[in-house]
Design a protein around this nucleic acid. Structure first.
Length: 883
DNA sequence: GTTGTCACG
DNA sequence: ACGTACGTGACAACA
């Protein structure tokens, strides 16, 4: 039997817009003639993926023809008030059809009709002939077309992620049939299409009404029977609007289209046209992907020359070379070197790890501070070489770190991705050379590896001037050379030093926890009346909500939620809920911390070596992994005991820890210049108590109870996160209006904070990014999005990132100064860990006295703000005791 | 590979 | 009315 026919219908206009905003990097995506290409680039990616995933037999991309349509005839404001298309998108518009047709599909537009109507018409036509139909769009209105044969996929974020709508999923999510979407729209209106609906009726109310009455028509037949209410009045007053809005939302299924279905058959891609299109747009990766299907990878590269050395001499080194050490494993504390490459603009050398390790000239060059080196990932390179017995000094440029500083989205391990972004395409992806997953392997032919590395050397050299130019342009030079690059080397030292963890202590806990977990399981089984896997949220929810019939409090995407807040609510009536909470807590400790950490202790040294990722977070913080030492339990006593296993590496030594008190709020006080918040810090008041007094109008400090202070604390946290009344109400377990009152009063009492929030969002909307005190940037492409969720998220991020980021900058500076001071004073103390606002050291007892003054002094004076910074220090025989 | 949950600042 | 706190990583289960 032949495969079933499948028609793929794309809303070209909607996807083009989303492509444009989803990849809003106008500087980078330009062709040789200065034409912007970002939307075309993203659109190409969707098309390629859709062909691959959907494998349609028939396809059409529909576009809106123009502003006037049959809808504007009876409501002239329809889609009014829309911003005009940005010129950067308009200039790309003519090329969409070129691309689509080269790929083997047709495009279509029809005067007076929207893309929706074309799509609806063809969908119905195809269904009648037994096709499967898939519709791709960014417009939720099209879900009205979903049937058993037709699936509607809506873009969620940008264009890369799609959410599928079928009649069942619509029923499940909204409790109505696809066709009732039209009635829903009629009642609630649509602000982006600019039609009104009924006053004060939104999605929730509309759904409620539809569940009761089924349709707008039926609703108005029974409107007189409704109880007297404001809503009833609104319904009656806006009756005409409701019917008109419904008409506007209804997709025309009998549009006079001209192609027959047979004419929509997908044809083979027109390779010649595609090649010339990609050339014109400077889409080198896509060009390469086209080649891949026929030719060998390296054939599309320019030739590169390099020399493989079996014996290395001093003549093979000069000042200012690039260096790359290849290792496939992510965790470089345990990996094996594959090969090494270095060179300058004229000459590139490669050598085997054995040759390099045995070479005195190489070691001397590597250790020589005067011989400058450029690398990709300085920290990684330095640690790898350290394990090979080679000290690496004189690193003056790190391509990876540089690209991350310029754009925090560049976090990758693969140099090819970064290189490509800056227009250098003469280097393969690691995946291409080594494969991935289980199939990953070093090619037998050593020349393949060495040529690959030679190209990486070339990439490092080619990229550097471009990256430096970006630094100058964006005022990032100081952040890079004074903070990030020196920090990379300090983090390398910390990782290599590691922290001693006593396995015996953890083993003991493991046995005890295992026994207790078995006991707890038994209790839970008894309560449930059967055995099941408590660790499975799915099995658990069946027991709780289906078998035991407990009330459902919250749902997840896939079923019932069994998260902490839910179980806490249930625990009032069902003892099993509390038992599960206790079980979960202990199971977490056992799997992640006891067993998890044991796996990472190096038997030879008894130490754990984490890896700090310096190029990952969007705010400038570090992250820690394999294992994560930034989330070792502390809030609950039971978990906190894990810290007893973290001890100094010498007998009698101490663990010394210093943390900033309220650094984020102090940063906020500084950047917002809010008088009251500044005053609280300058006068060394307890900030949460001070907030409580102002917000709740308490005169006497003694009258601030624990509970009131707790609420004020939650408000302060909320402020830093970009507050919402809903979030605060959830956090405090109070009603939304109550939360709103707190926030309103807060803004009244701290007008500077309110002003800061308005200003920073405004600034983000204008510039497209926000920055920290030290000019670290975070781009916010969604800040002007028409999608409420995306935009709101970006707005909260605009508020939070400069605060969190500046705090991160400050601790980074403190780390650099601290490292310097320890060296200058010839101290034995070692910096071991960084946990966002605290530093952890190990030290001999005789240095405690010095540290107690030195660490706070350096941390408190790392920067000078308009409010003081305050540091608390503690020490003891283990991390647990340093509290 | 994705989802839900939970550990930290 | 919209649906929410900001930033992370690891684990077990399940597709």
């Amino acid at each position: 039997m032949a495969d079933k026919k499948k028609l793929l219908l794309l809303d070209g206009s909607s996807l083009a817009f989303r492509s444009f905003y989803g990849l809003l990097d106008l500087n980078r995506f330009k062709n040789q003639n200065g034409l912007h290409t970002n939307a075309l680039y993203a659109f190409n990616r969707i098309l390629t993926r859709l062909f691959e995933v959907e494998q349609p037999t028939h396809m059409l991309v529909a576009f809106d023809a123009g502003k006037t349509t049959f809808r504007t005839e009876y409501f002239k404001e329809y889609k009014g008030g829309r911003q005009t298309m940005p010129s950067e998108l308009a200039e790309q518009w003519p090329y969409f059809s070129v691309l689509i047709e080269a790929m083997g599909s047709k495009t279509y537009e029809l005067p007076n009709y929207e893309a929706d109507d074309i799509i609806g018409t063809y969908a119905r036509m195809a269904e009648e002939q037994g096709f499967d139909v898939v519709i791709i769009t960014g417009d939720k209105d099209l879900t009205q077309l979903a049937t058993d044969q037709t699936r509607v996929d809506i873009t969620v974020k940008g264009v890369s992620e799609l959410k599928s709508y079928t009649p069942e999923s619509i029923r499940e999510e909204m409790g109505i049939e696809p066709l009732q979407i039209i009635d829903m729209k009629g009642l609630m209106g649509d602000s982006s299409d600019n039609y009104p609906g009924v006053t004060k009726v939104g999605e929730k109310t509309a759904l409620k009404l539809l569940k009761e009455y089924g349709s707008i028509e039926n609703l108005y037949e029974h409107v007189d029977e409704m109880k007297k209410s404001k809503m009833k009045e609104n319904l009656i007053n806006d009756k005409e609007l409701a019917f008109m809005s419904k008409k506007l939302a209804t997709i025309d299924l009998a549009t006079p289209v001209s192609y027959s279905l047979d004419e929509l058959i997908v044809t083979d891609e027109n390779k010649e046209e595609l090649v010339s299109f990609y050339r014109e747009m400077n889409f080198n990766t896509f060009l390469r992907d086209l080649d891949h299907t026929e030719e060998d990878v390296s054939d599309s590269f320019e030739k590169i020359t390099y020399t493989h050395l079996d014996e290395i001499t001093e003549a093979h080194f000069t000042n200012d070379m690039a260096l790359y050490v290849e290792m496939l494993e992510d965790n470089y504390h345990y990996g094996t070197i594959v090969s090494v490459a270095w060179g300058d603009a004229n000459t590139i050398y490669t050598a085997s790890p054995e040759t390099v390790k045995a070479s005195i000239p190489f070691k001397e060059w590597a250790a020589n501070e005067e011989m400058k080196k450029a690398v990709y990932d300085a920290k990684r390179t330095q640690v790898i070489l350290h394990y090979a017995g080679i000290t690496l000094n004189g690193i003056h440029f790190d391509t990876l770190l540089a690209s991350y500083i310029i754009n925090t989205k560049d976090t990758g391990r693969d140099i090819a991705a970064v290189a490509q972004e800056y227009g250098y395409t003469e280097v393969s992806y690691d995946e291409t050379v080594y494969g991935k997953g289980a199939k990953q392997a070093v090619p037998e032919d050593a020349d393949i590896v060495n040529e690959h590395l030679a190209r990486k050397i070339k990439a490092i050299q080619t990229l550097r001037p471009q990256l430096e130019a970006e630094f100058e342009k964006d005022n990032l030079t100081e952040l890079y050379y004074e903070i990030e690059l020196p920090l990379a080397l300090i983090l390398a030292e910390m990782e290599m030093t590691g922290i001693t963890v006593e396995p015996a202590r953890l083993e003991k806990m493991k046995v005890e926890f295992a026994a207790r977990l078995t006991e707890m399981e038994k209790g839970i089984y008894t309560e449930a009346g059967e055995e099941f896997n408590v660790n499975s949220p799915k099995q658990l929810s069946i027991i709780l909500f289906e078998k035991m019939g407990l009330p459902v409090i919250k749902k997840t995407k896939t079923g019932y939620s069994t998260a902490v807040d839910v179980l806490e609510k249930l625990s009032a009536t069902a003892p099993i809920a509390q038992m599960i909470l206790d079980y979960r807590q202990l199971a977490k400790l056992q799997s992640t911390y006891v067993e998890g950490l044991l796996k990472y202790i190096k038997p030879e040294t008894g130490k754990i070596h984490t890896i700090y990722t310096q190029t990952l977070t969007q705010t400038g913080r570090l992250s820690s992994n394999e294992p994560n030492l930034q989330n070792i339990p502390v809030r609950m006593e039971e978990g906190r005991k894990i810290r007893q296993a973290f001890v100094p590496s010498h007998p009698d030594w101490q663990i010394f820890a210093s943390d900033y008190s309220q650094i984020e709020l102090r940063v906020l006080a500084h950047i917002s210049e809010d008088a009251h918040m500044k005053e609280a810090f300058i006068e060394e008041q307890d900030i949460h108590t001070s907030t409580a007094m102002r917000v709740f109008g308490i005169e006497d400090e003694a009258e601030v109870t624990g509970n009131v202070r707790r609420q004020a604390k939650a408000v302060n946290f909320g402020i830093v996160y970009g507050i919402s009344d809903y979030g605060l109400s959830q956090n405090l377990g109070i009603s939304r209006p109550e939360a709103k009152t707190f926030i309103d009063t807060y803004f009244e009492k701290y007008p500077g904070i309110k002003q800061f929030m308005t200003d920073i969002v405004e600034e983000a909307k204008e510039k497209g990014f926000v920055e920290t005190l030290f000019h670290r940037r975070r781009y916010l492409p969604d800040i002007n999005s028409s999608n409420f969720n995306l935009r709101s998220f970006a707005e909260r991020t605009a508020i939070n990132s400069p605060i969190q980021g500046t705090a991160a900058d400050i601790l980074k500076i403190a780390m650099i100064r601290m490292n310097k001071a320890l060296k200058e004073k010839n101290m034995k103390t070692r910096m071991l860990l960084q946990v966002h606002d605290e530093l952890i050291f190990e030290c001999p007892p005789e240095e405690i006295e010095v540290l107690e003054k030195l660490v706070p002094e350096i941390m408190e004076n790392a920067v000078s703000l308009s409010v003081p910074l305050l540091v608390d220090s503690h020490y003891g025989n283990s991390w647990y005791e340093a509290k």
